[in-house]
Design a binder for these strands. Structure first.
Ligand SMILES: [Mn+2]
Ligand SMILES: [Mn+2]
Ligand SMILES: [Mn+2]
Ligand SMILES: [Mn+2]
Lengths: 220, 220
DNA sequence: AATTTTTTTTAGATTTATCTAAATTTAAAA
DNA sequence: TTTTAAATTTAGATAAATCTAAAAAAAATT
């Protein structure tokens, strides 16, 4: 199989590509993995040799079909374990990411399939991220960034794009958790602070906080 | 923390010491870990530097108190995950060892404590092995090898000392699983085959099979 | 277009865990 | 008590993943 390190590179490349939709740069990978650009270059050559990435010197990388498949399997494992940790072991949504970072590398297909069944085939993880199915297919996400939501439109929080513990703890304190209904009542013109009505409670949040919240206006 | 490799060495030294009660030899470790004696020597020096083992050249090794503690924690994790895999994910007792070999290295204390709670603080794993508590204490095992059991004495299977899949599958086919009651009706004088009464069913097993079965004559 | 800055890649080392082959030490046999 | 055999350790290499420092390429500024 592939080493933990290789798996982590593939996963990071997958995620970076998702946001940029452009070949992923060496420095971006180095930043995510807390490593040096030189180390990344070394690994990129190795992954290219294994035909897991398309790599042209100085031009950044994309995943090959095979590389994408592996990356998605790791993401699937990660998210299923996060569901397990929250649903079954009662961890908070801010505590599970780092544990899942380790569990995701335990690779034995039947384990993940049985875990999926045990958890009753969850569609999303505790942060609202979609869980790919065993063949690597994602459901199509019908979601909007909270900053793109128009005023006075009812919406439901369905996810967050930032998984750090301080951020998640902060949201929890504000009562902004997955499944909560909200509505933008107004936006302060001076600094763009959002005035929300969240299940009747009036709260105001900065754009920096709002930036990472995903909402849905359907399925309410 | 310690690398997977270091953890595996400590665990193997612990197990080998348990059966021999004598300093563990380089070759024995190499055998268990499918590695070479030279590699073992290298690692023993490293573990001795870290004060996890007592090592005298050519004289074999024992674990220090600190080394023992780490080994026991890994064994605790291994056995708890095995319980999880059998009880919650419905794996067979012959399928879980290799998966647990990987899961045991996911080290984050609260994870194991919560898993323990989720599983309702099990005392033994699916093979009847005792699970040490969070402080590393083992219950005292009141158990006898089936070969030491006298004839016509009621006993209950409480464990096995061989965990290979073929062996466990074989026992299962014979109906010799943990918790089953049995009684030795006789022993063939020619080759020592044991004639058993297992919950009314008459079965005969070779000494090679009987060798790895542990029974209890109390708590029935 | 020439210069500066940023990004990326190479060159050369280092660390960890492994190996083979040869040398030592200990144990067993003659 | 030699001699032989077995077990263990050293010496020297190798592979994976990382690093720093320096060179090279690409992008951004003058
Ligand atoms: Mn996560
Ligand atoms: Mn990871
Ligand atoms: Mn086991
Ligand atoms: Mn292990």
């Amino acid at each position: 199989m592939h080493s933990f390190t290789e798996e982590n590179y593939l996963k990071v490349i997958f995620h970076l590509y998702q946001v940029q939709e452009m070949p992923v740069q060496t420095n971006a990978i180095a930043g995510k993995l807390n490593t040096r650009a030189a180390s990344v270059t070394d690994m990129l050559k190795k992954l290219a040799d294994k035909k897991l990435i398309n790599y042209i010197r100085y031009q950044g990388v994309t995943l090959t079909e095979q590389g994408k498949l592996i990356a998605i399997q790791i993401i699937r494992r990660h998210r299923l374990w996060e569901v397990f940790l929250v649903e079954k072991l009662n961890f908070g949504w801010d505590e599970v990411h780092d544990i899942a970072e380790e569990l995701e590398h335990v690779g034995y297909q039947p384990l993940i399939e049985r875990l999926d069944k045990f958890l009753n085939y969850p569609k999303r993880d505790p942060h609202g991220d979609l869980i790919p199915d065993s063949s690597g297919e994602f459901e199509i996400a019908v979601q909007t960034g909270l900053l793109e939501l128009a005023e006075n439109i009812n919406a439901v929080i369905i996810g967050v794009t930032e998984h750090s513990s301080p951020y998640l703890k902060h949201l929890e304190k504000l009562g902004l958790t997955i499944g909560e209904s909200l509505l933008i009542e107004g936006i302060t013109s001076y600094d763009g602070t959002l005035e929300l009505d969240c299940s009747g409670k009036k709260i105001s949040i900065s754009r920096k906080v709002a930036q990472h919240i995903l909402v849905s206006t359907k399925n309410q």
